[in-house]
Design a protein around this nucleic acid. Structure first.
Lengths: 173, 173
DNA sequence: AATGAAAAGTGTTGGCA
DNA sequence: TGCCAACACTTTTCATT
């Protein structure tokens, strides 16, 4: 496993929470909120980036504003001979595929796809289905969002219900 | 519809792309890259925030580092009487639910759930299934990620294949 | 080990052309 | 939109606990 037991205390958690809420918050301001100097905050952030706890700072956009108005989840069924690695390569060639993962259940993989419109989505789907080792696909078009959670661990940070999880991120203890 | 035809040119797109790649990039640096003064970049970013094109700046973390090591997509089947609005309310009470949306197909909704481990996930699932109007659920546990795309529209921004989409984000023309 | 204070460099932001 | 100036933030160095 590539999971080192990275030390991670309550102060780190608060800093990450602040940065998840707004990645452009100044270290000075975060420091004032958590009771640390800007210097100390910066050092902790640098360390968390080194440790791979923080993987980046990004901007969230309303996809529709950029012309991506169609969204779907697609179950992919492969020939039993095709290894996940092969699928990973294929998936990389599609800018419309936002995420791809192997899952339990009948399907071999689940794809998160965005397209400009239904026509574009159909075109993407046809391309995917034409891939040699793909047997069939089942699409679930997204109709409306019931919850627009903060990206990734936003909610997670807000609710660290289990103290053990925070104290020992690896859970190997 | 809440979709105003927001003007959005190539320069805006480049600026957003830069900020999606790194939300902490300085306006000065972005300006140098796109051929604009820092002031002009700031004004465009402010405008895009006003217009709702940019919805926020956030930090991406490795969920496992925060103690969230289990992930699943859950199809939810409701009593036909239950309106989506009702589901939206329920879903808000679960910090483990990262995203929820109504979808086409047999299921009424699809949930993206994160949990500390399989035990925690089972506990969450039991709570969800105990909700009065939920008839059944089908879970797809995520085994491995084949693609860790940049959050949301990262890939989309990198590949604005269709010029029409950029020139007229609403597509109403 | 980790912190804070200070200094120098850089970025932000509002006014004005 | 750009330029400029005041202010704020970042980041390195050095000293402290």
């Amino acid at each position: 496993m590539t999971q080192r037991p990275v030390p991670f205390d309550a102060l780190d958690r608060k800093i990450v929470a602040a940065l998840v809420e707004n990645a452009r918050t100044s270290f000075t301001e975060i420091g004032a909120a958590v009771g640390l100097s800007a210097t100390a905050v910066k050092r902790r952030v640098d360390r968390m980036r080194e440790d791979g706890v923080i993987t980046g700072f990004t901007t969230t956009v309303r996809p529709a504003a950029l012309g991506w108005r169609t969204e779907a989840y697609v179950e992919v069924y492969c020939d039993s001979a095709a290894p996940p690695r092969r699928l990973a390569e294929v998936v990389r060639d599609y800018p419309e595929i936002m995420a791809a993962m192997t899952v339990t259940g009948g399907a071999d993989a689940l794809l998160h796809v965005r397209a400009r419109d239904v026509e574009h989505f159909e075109e993407v789907l046809e391309r995917i289905r034409a891939e040699p080792f793909i047997r069939k696909t089942i699409s679930y078009m997204v109709l409306s969002h019931l919850l627009t959670a903060s990206p990734e661990a936003g909610a997670a940070l807000a609710a660290p219900e289990d103290p053990a999880a925070a104290a020992d991120p690896t859970g190997d203890a």
